Computed example of a mutant assay.
Amino acid sequence: MSAPDPAPGRFNGLELLASAVLLVDGEGAVRYANPAAENLIETSQKQLTRSTLLTLFTNGAELADLCREALAHRWSDRRQDLTLERTGREPLHVHTIVSSAGENEVVIELRENVQQKKLDREERMLDQSQANKELIRNLAHEIKNPLGGIRGAAQLLELELPPAHAAELSEYTQVIIKEADRLQVLVDRLLAPHRRPHIVGDVNIHEVCERVRSLIQAEFPTGLTIKRDYDTSIPEFRGDREQLIQTVLNIAHNAAQALAPRIAAGDAEIILRTRVARQVTLAKVRYGLALDLHIIDNGPGIAPEIRDRMFYPLVSGRSGGSGLGLTLAQTFVQQHMGVIECESRPGLTDFRILLPLP
């Protein structure tokens, strides 16, 4: 049986709040939920008011205990960070405020814990990146070993062709040799981040950005404007300059290629923006200062179907693309103890790189 409806108009003001609000009774049954609560919990108000805290959340007992303590007037309100588990859905990381609202009513305010959600996302990306690197390394070696044999056999076969048909048949052996060479280049690119030593030195991020800017501008001399929005107070830091140039170049080059229609129209734009971020957590480590680098373009945006997989190897949104540029960028950024994020929609794609500063 559903809980009785609250008095009409009693909670009109709560309808406008951005925070999720639940009104529950002493048994933990939900009597009211505002629209923000419907959105956060992904359940309609009608269904919510037929539920209890124990049926909504598999670990709802902790929240129910807080409600009982509120009714016992042990405190005026209680604030606590909770992770509310749900069957078949992602857990909710929320900051809760529990307070008594009457003789047998408790108000629960739920605010999504954005920082915890961000940390969880970064941890998942790091785990996925590690799995990708192991997969790439093993797969590349498995391809590389027989590839040399295939190419060598094709070369020997070409030497044994009958002279009368050598010119005609060598066309086929050359196809084998050229395709083997193409695959060799791909394998070398897959193994590049694991082969090359991490060469650390003093890095000026604006020298990195300027190098990338000159390379992109040389390839796309007309129709594309590359704007600089630098915070020149950013200090030098220890890092691998060539890896960072390759990272920014991969992202900016992808952006320029995606901007082809706007380049033709003459209004394509890429922005290189640097800022300092303070009190940033990267890979579970807290840093007082971090480099906040953005590569922004006004292109069509990343296709929704690959947005969650764009850092995976061999995933490309462009015909003929290798799908390695962003994978390498993520690897290089993680080798610098940083993170790379992306927000994209039609007309704006923003890649954000955060690196710790001294």
Results as ranks from 00 to 15, higher is better:
Gln184Cys: 04
Asn204Pro: 06
Asp188Ala: 08
Glu112Asp: 11
Leu126Met: 11
Ile150Ala: 06
Val212His: 03
Arg151Asn: 10
Gln128Asn: 14
Leu190Thr: 01
Gln116Pro: 01
Pro146Leu: 12
Thr225Ala: 09
Met125Pro: 01
His165Val: 12
Ala180Met: 07
Gly201Phe: 02
Leu157Lys: 01
Pro221Met: 09
Leu191Thr: 04
Leu159Met: 06
Thr247Val: 04
Val200Tyr: 04
Ala153Ile: 07
Ala131Glu: 14
Asp120Ser: 12
Gly152Tyr: 11
Cys209Arg: 02
Pro163Leu: 11
Val114Asn: 09
Glu171Met: 13
Arg213Ile: 06
Leu244His: 06
Tyr230Ile: 05
Ile177Thr: 10
Glu105Phe: 04
Lys178Tyr: 04
Leu161Arg: 10
Leu183Val: 04
Val107Asp: 00
Leu191Ser: 07
Gln115Leu: 14
Pro221Tyr: 09
Pro235Lys: 05
Asp229Ser: 12
Arg195His: 08
Ser233Trp: 01
Ile136Asn: 08
Glu134Asp: 09
Gln246Gly: 02
Leu135Tyr: 12
Thr173Met: 05
Leu147Asp: 06
Ile245Gly: 07
Ala167Gly: 07
Gln115Ile: 11
Ala140Phe: 03
Gln115Asp: 15
Lys178Asp: 15
Thr247Cys: 14
Gln246Thr: 06
Leu147Ala: 01
Leu190Asp: 03
Asp229Ala: 12
Arg195Ser: 05
Pro146Lys: 11
Arg124Asp: 15
Glu105Leu: 11
Cys209Val: 14
Leu139Met: 10
Arg182Met: 07
Gln155Gly: 02
Pro162Ala: 03
Arg211Pro: 08
Leu147Phe: 06
Pro235Ile: 03
Gly223Ile: 01
